[in-house]
Design a binder for these strands. Structure first.
Lengths: 112, 112
DNA sequence: CCGTATCCAGCTTGATACTG
DNA sequence: CAGTATCAAGCTGGATACGG
């Protein structure tokens, strides 16, 4: 056996890849803002200051693909689309809590 | 007032920024490989297949700056440099464990 | 042995304009 | 209202060469 269990590598990749997605510019903020109620696209757009429509769409689609949130389209005119956390999304927020706590306790706040 | 508590934003940024660093291509892998013993630069370089010297240096320096690992230089010839997790680094690994578990249970493995 | 310096390709993000 | 299309700028990571 080497010092490096080979089976750990793909697992680390999976975790790293996911953290990379969740660590992008908007995902954490979006998860926090979404909270525990359904929200519409425009509502999220206003709540997350500075995000472009494009990046909001991309971020939402990524989270939907990961099964973290549920997208519901109402075929009305004008259209209405609502987003909410899935059970999986809620368990993700729970899993992220210790990391958030660690960051608050161990990382300095940004300068300025 | 908006629906968005203003004080949450900087905190989300701190967490998001940190996750972005820790979610880069090599950090998680490095944390796993480093484990609980001191390792030399070349040893890490061999253990993490495919990383360049440059990226190993950059990743190590970032973790050092975050207080996650300790770098010890022995001014011998040839030089010897050892890296080890700090207490803070060990607490980080503990905090990351639930996220790792979540990923294993909720994210499909990469295709191929 | 343990790095640093330089250069470059590709990816990520944002601005802007447009649409059912 | 809730997006999509297009384009440009900046950043990230990797290859390569060199240094104490």
């Amino acid at each position: 056996m080497t010092t490096e269990p080979q089976h750990l590598l793909p697992n680390c990749r999976r975790v790293g890849d996911f953290l990379e997605r969740v660590g992008d510019k908007w995902t954490i903020l979006l998860l926090m803002v979404l909270g525990d109620r359904r929200m519409r696209f425009g509502e999220l757009h206003r709540a997350i200051n500075g995000i472009s429509q494009r990046m909001l769409t991309v971020t939402l689609r990524n989270l939907e693909r990961d099964g973290v949130l549920i997208r519901t389209v109402y075929p009305t005119i004008p259209p209405r689309v609502e987003y909410e956390l899935s059970d999986r999304g809620r368990s993700l927020k729970l899993a992220l809590a210790p990391v958030g706590k660690w960051v608050m306790e161990n990382q300095p706040s940004a300068p300025g």
